[in-house]
Simulated assay, not measured.
Amino acid sequence: AIIIHSNIQTCDIITKAIQRYEPIFFPPKLSMRDPPSGVNNILQNLTLNIRDNPQCEQYIQHDSNETYTLTINLQMAIVEASSVWGLLRGLETFSQLIYINEQNYVVINNSVTIIDSPRFQHRGVMLDTARHFLPVPIIKKNLDAMAYNKLNVFHWHIVDDQSFPFESITFPDLSRAGAFSPYHVYTPADVIDVIEHARLRGIRVIPEIDTPGHTYSWGKSMPQLITVCWANGKPYQAIYGTQGEMEIFNPIEPRVYSTMDSLLREVKSRFPSNYIHLGMDEVYDRCWLSNPNITQWMIVNNISSARGLHAYYADKILDITRNINVVPIVWQDVWDEKVQVRSF
């Protein structure tokens, strides 16, 4: 069997990575044999080294160095990197190069030298667990698949119109009323579990709290935040293909911003990544413009269009992220619709 060494083996990132990969190197159902001496393509040693000053970083960052060098020659394999994240990527490459031969030896066809680094710092997958709830074990399997492909960002679209499965400590009624059922929620322990599973694989978890649209599920416990849609001089009027009876956050309601301030503070405290995705896509504004209270407010505040109203909302939410020191992300719709927001 291969003997694995590391100059940072006490780091939990590396210790647990070795535990994960050993069953891949040495399948439990096979009786692995000690290799004979003098056979060059039968691997005997794997060394994982961090150059210079080894640091056991706990969470991968947007600018983390994931470069590594993998050398395999004369029964020995060496992965060298400047960070634990580079070692993880090199270890994954190594696991994909070796195989078990008919005599149950770990072998490789030829000597190898690989110098590898990512082309893109952000390599992500988004899972929408609001429209279609995914149990935590399935999310973990997706994280495992991401690690196999060296992806490093899990964009967790965790709430939407259809359901609010994120169990908020600050606003517990959001999931009590907004989840598909009491069983289709992500508890605080679930969130910690997912983040830890991702952390050990060099994956950041970026949550998405999508507003001002995509908020129907919020209205089940906080209807005061949602705009009442009008038609023909009457409130609560649904128009097929245009608007529901109540739809989209009400941008002139102060409680929208106090609620978002509290919830975003909670999200920041529970997700180590300093990034939060704010959505802001698919803002269907006809409901806004149908509401006489909103249109009157727009006149008083010299806002002449729905685009200006969207910009007003976006600026207020971005002010919250500035105050809590969060880096915001939004969907491209904000640019496509030419919503003018203050520079961050």
Rank of each mutant, 00 (worst) to 15 (best):
I2G: 03
S6H: 06
C11Y: 10
D12R: 13
T15R: 15
K16H: 13
Q19F: 14
R20Y: 12
E22R: 11
I24K: 12
P27I: 00
D34G: 11
L48G: 03
I50Q: 15
D52E: 10
C56Q: 02
E57L: 10
E57N: 11
D63P: 08
D63Q: 15
N65A: 08
A77I: 00
A77V: 13
I78D: 14
V79K: 06
S82T: 14
S83C: 06
V84L: 04
L87N: 03
E92F: 02
Q96E: 09
Y99F: 15
I100H: 06
Q103K: 08
N104Y: 08
N104K: 07
N104I: 04
V107L: 10
V107A: 08
I108D: 02
N109F: 00
T113N: 15
I114V: 03
R119D: 07
R119P: 05
Q121L: 13
V125A: 03
H132S: 04
F133K: 03
P135K: 09
P137G: 09
K140C: 00
K140A: 00
K141A: 15
L143Y: 07
A145V: 11
N149I: 10
K150L: 08
N152Y: 14
H155C: 05
D161L: 00
P165H: 01
S168L: 10
F171N: 07
S175C: 01
Y183D: 14
Y186L: 06
T187A: 00
A189Q: 08
I192Q: 13
L200S: 01
L200I: 07
P207G: 02
P212E: 04
G213A: 03
W218E: 07
G219C: 13
K220W: 12
Q224D: 09
L225E: 04
I226P: 05
C229R: 05
A231F: 11
G233C: 11
P235L: 04
A238W: 04
T242K: 15
Q243E: 09
E245H: 06
E247D: 13
E247H: 15
I248G: 07
I252H: 04
R255W: 12
R255Y: 14
Y257L: 10
S258V: 08
E266V: 12
F271G: 00
N274S: 08
M280A: 11
Y284C: 02
R286T: 02
T295D: 05
Q296I: 09
W297Q: 05
L309E: 01
A311E: 09
Y312D: 07
Y313V: 11
D315H: 13
N325A: 10
V326Q: 09
V326P: 00
V327Y: 15
P328G: 06
I329F: 11
I329Y: 13
D333H: 12
V334A: 04
R342L: 14
S343Q: 14
